[in-house]
Nucleic acid binder design. Structure first.
Lengths: 327, 327
DNA sequence: CTGAAAGCGCTAACAT
DNA sequence: ATGTTAGCGCTTTCAG
């Protein structure tokens, strides 16, 4: 059996209360001699605190649960790094619960799991909640914050990049390079996708370009979504494309090249993300770069009640995937 | 205050024991009528079970902790998928603890965290343990298994690809394509790296090629490690390279292209991993492909005592990054 | 500075 | 089928 404070108490002759105090470092409530003796015996016995028991009596935990929707793209690592960094600084542990990809049952279950573990806060990453999820979250008294998804509801906390701006800037960049037939590929039907669509459409409109519905190719931010869009784009003679993710951009470029196009001459691409994939792809992808670490950090801030930036700005990173278009 | 079984007991008039029984679905120990009443009140009150309390009294949890070393490459997602899949089938939850990259303090702390939470098992992914880690793990009575690292110690459980074979096959493939000056880039000094080095060296030896120490460029499996190796390789006129990861391979190819080389004519590359990066890179990377999902599944099996495959076989996937070499 | 005692929310004998 | 009771390992008054 694992040793408990009782064993230490028996061994040292102190009461369990005293042992508890030194182990919890309640300073000023025990003498140095007592402390040394307790610590020594604890070490000898190979004592490990039972966090479960502690959390039960304290009725609080120092753990933040991150529930992540596993999108078929690769942006999440940076965010998790940021979360980890800030959480550690605040003395919180981080546990990550994977919820599959757009899997309602798993997603709901993950929220319940987090709630039943009495975590101190819940971060929902790339998650689109349904009514039940939202009810569950609001009824519990656990703080929560959506990450990388902006639900466009003032009452619900979220931290994400400015999706509208991201798409707007990407589209404008292509327009500034002479493109007039501009696609948007890989976005989904949810909040993030819709916001990017709005930004894209606004940029077209502000520049007096009459967009076509077919220029928007829906998808799931994946490499495959990019590949699949190439043929349609070729048929409609699109010259520049805003891709919803680096993965999607890479897929589109690859399909174009396999079909004999010379890039970026025959097709310009701007991706949204700015991960290492941009450097790996050929030509290197010009991107709207998200500040993932910052998003992670701010989301933890949001959770602990500090006022956090809810819309993290994006920046443009020029690489080699866009070429000036001349008729 | 959150409602507890006490509240349900008070409301229904039953004892807490009965409430506990129906909530825990101890079938046969309560009537249908009782169950309906209890469940109804539980729902009305918005009752959520306190997992902490349950785990404390049961002295066991149904959670597997995955401690992951964040390597600067991208192989881990597939493994986690496999772990998740198998764990869910076994009724276990999965929590993931990030331990930074080769950060001894964080790594040790993560093990302690897992132990103090009384998890049912610990999976250590891409982790190189030191003496203290190993002592901690063996002294606790918690099952553990190393994943994607083979410690070459019969007494310590691990599941990984056959690193020796992976490097051997990659090297032989290049030799079969006429290469004689073959590099190995991106490996580290730890077990995985050493095992791959052995396989590489054995393949050279078996084919009567006298290797040079400088053909081996150490690294950390990163994109940057690949980039950094290009110049040295160019100077020593290496014609084929085995890369320790897809990321490293991509970095090497990119550096070569930036320096004006035509690939794969001027340099052939085989990578070890076989992730989507292989398709994104240009030319698409021929790879020794690891079965990540299988590794994840087997590692969970290993934990729960089923006899698991400890060395998961790799396969060769031909793409476009290797060209026949002729003098 | 230390100890005794009362729980945290739940489960598991042991009764009935 | 249900209730009573005794904890799980820890923290925290309240006394002294």
């Amino acid at each position: 059996m694992k040793p408990t404070i009782k064993d230490i108490a028996a061994e040292t002759g102190f009461s369990i209360a005293t042992v508890s105090r030194v182990l919890a470092e309640k300073r000023g409530s025990y003498s140095d001699k007592t402390r040394d003796r307790v610590l020594k015996v604890a070490k000898e016995l190979g004592y490990r605190k039972n966090t479960l028991a502690m959390e039960l009596v304290k009725k609080k935990t120092d753990v933040i649960a991150v529930i992540v929707n596993v999108t078929p793209t690769n942006f999440s690592n940076g965010i998790i790094d940021g979360i980890q960094e800030r959480a550690t600084a605040l003395g919180q542990q981080v546990i990550i619960l994977y919820a599959g990809n757009r899997n309602h049952a798993l997603q709901h279950q993950a929220i319940i799991t987090a709630l039943e573990r009495s975590v101190s806060g819940i971060l929902l990453m790339a998650i689109e909640p349904d009514k039940d999820d939202l009810r569950l979250l609001t009824e519990a008294r656990t703080p929560f914050c959506f990450v990388s998804v902006n639900l466009a509801d003032e009452r619900i906390k979220s931290v994400s990049s400015d999706n509208y701006q991201a798409a707007y800037q990407a589209t404008e960049y292509l327009i500034a390079h002479g493109h007039r037939r501009i696609g948007l590929v890989g976005i989904d039907q949810y909040h993030t996708g819709s916001q990017r669509r709005s930004g894209y459409q606004a940029a077209l409109k502000d520049n007096h370009i009459q967009g076509k519905a077919s220029w928007i190719q829906m998808g799931d931010y994946s490499y495959q979504a990019g590949q699949a869009a190439f043929k349609p784009y070729q048929q409609m003679a699109v010259t520049g494309v805003v891709a919803a993710s680096d993965m999607t951009a890479a897929g589109l470029q690859k399909a174009a090249q396999i079909n004999g196009l010379e890039l970026p001459m025959a097709l310009s691409v701007v991706s949204i993300d700015g991960t290492l994939i941009c450097d790996i792809a050929t030509p290197a992808l010009t991107s709207i770069t998200q500040d993932f670490t910052r998003i992670g950090i701010e989301s933890v801030n949001c959770l602990v009640g500090e006022n956090a930036t809810q819309l993290v700005p994006v920046t443009l990173t020029e690489r080699d995937s866009v070429m000036k278009y001349v008729e």
